[in-house]
């Protein structure tokens, strides 16, 4: 089955699946091969790795980017010109609440559907989409986040397209005597879609997708982004985290700009980890170790 690569949690994977493709969420910034997006000052390492990897993949039917950030918009433009893999740039509104804005998101989902059909995908009925949604919802309900069996200083993660639980960061945190009790990255609890409502015909599946994704997921790029802070406040209180680790890519303005406000808003030490790729550099390891040391001393 051909794959559709996507990066944003606001792209419903079940919609891709309903059209007969395998959804592949971008894993992180570790791809080092060349591609349409150059390795240049100001270019996000995640964008570069994600787009270049997708463009290099023999199994890629398409790449879906969103307008949530400038990097994705411009990177998508370059990829559209220099890459043979078809690219879809989905316009995700930054504001929330207005019916017209939600309608715009729904319109983009439908447009994505048409794009996938034009690629040779199946044209799903509303029933097919509901089924795919139900399957995805069921899968989410039954995949519980793993309970941390290790002891250690409880930490929360926050950030964008980074792998919170897996990889070197989690290992380093545990090695230094910490444990991750909250994953607020784009791959964690914060971007878990809302549970599906009991369906009552003739509900439009696209409206329900908008409710489950667009209305439900707090993001850093929405304006205002108060929902992100509301979510984080509640999640931190529930998790018992004693420190917050902000994971961001070096050129990501959206997350970087939140650092000062995060420090102000929560009575927790906030550690800034800036990534050039997925790997954890020695200096970032030192930062992680220093945070855990500081919290251990204060225990």
């Amino acid at each position: 089955m051909k794959r559709v690569f996507y990066a944003s949690p606001l792209v419903p994977s079940e919609l891709i699946r309903a059209h007969g493709f395998l959804p592949m969420m971008g894993a992180g910034g570790s791809f080092r091969g060349s591609g349409p997006v150059p390795d240049a000052a100001g270019v996000c390492a995640f964008l570069r790795a994600f787009v270049n990897e997708a463009c290099a993949s023999d199994e890629a039917a398409a790449v879906v980017l969103t307008t949530e950030c400038d990097q994705m918009r411009r990177g998508g433009e370059l990829a559209a010109v220099h890459c043979d893999v078809p690219l879809f740039l989905m316009d995700v509104p930054a504001t929330r609440g207005a019916p017209a804005v939600q309608a715009a998101y729904v319109g983009e989902l439908r447009r994505l559907g048409r794009f996938l059909v034009a690629l040779g995908g199946t044209r799903p009925s509303d029933e097919d989409i509901w089924d795919a949604m139900a399957e995805a919802d069921q899968s989410r309900r039954t995949s519980f986040p793993s309970v941390a069996l290790v002891e250690g200083v409880p930490l929360a993660l926050l950030g964008g397209h980074v792998s919170g639980r897996n990889g070197e960061l989690a290992a380093e945190i545990e090695r230094c005597g910490g444990r991750i009790v909250l994953d607020g990255t784009d791959r964690g609890a914060r971007t878990r879609p809302a549970p599906l409502r009991a369906r009552s015909a003739p509900d439009d599946p696209y409206d329900e997708l908008a409710r489950v994704y667009f209305d439900a997921l707090p993001t850093v790029c929405e304006r205002p982004n108060e929902r992100l802070y509301d979510w984080l406040r509640a999640a931190l209180a529930e998790s018992g985290a004693r420190g917050l680790v902000l994971l961001r890519y070096v050129w990501c303005d959206l997350w970087h700009a939140e650092l000062a406000e995060l420090e102000r808003a929560f009575d927790l030490p906030v550690l800034d980890i800036d990534l050039c790729g997925e790997e954890l550099s020695p200096r970032n390891r030192t930062r992680v170790q220093a945070l855990i040391e500081a919290l251990q001393v204060r225990t």
């Binding site: 420090e263 550690l271 200096r283 930062r287 220093a290 040391e293 204060r298």
Partner: peptide, 15 residues
């Protein structure tokens, strides 16, 4: 630092 000298938080320029 906290009152007792423990590190509360920190910022590093190491790149």
């Amino acid at each position: 630092l906290e009152q007792g000298g423990a590190v509360r938080d920190f910022a590093v320029n190491d790149r």
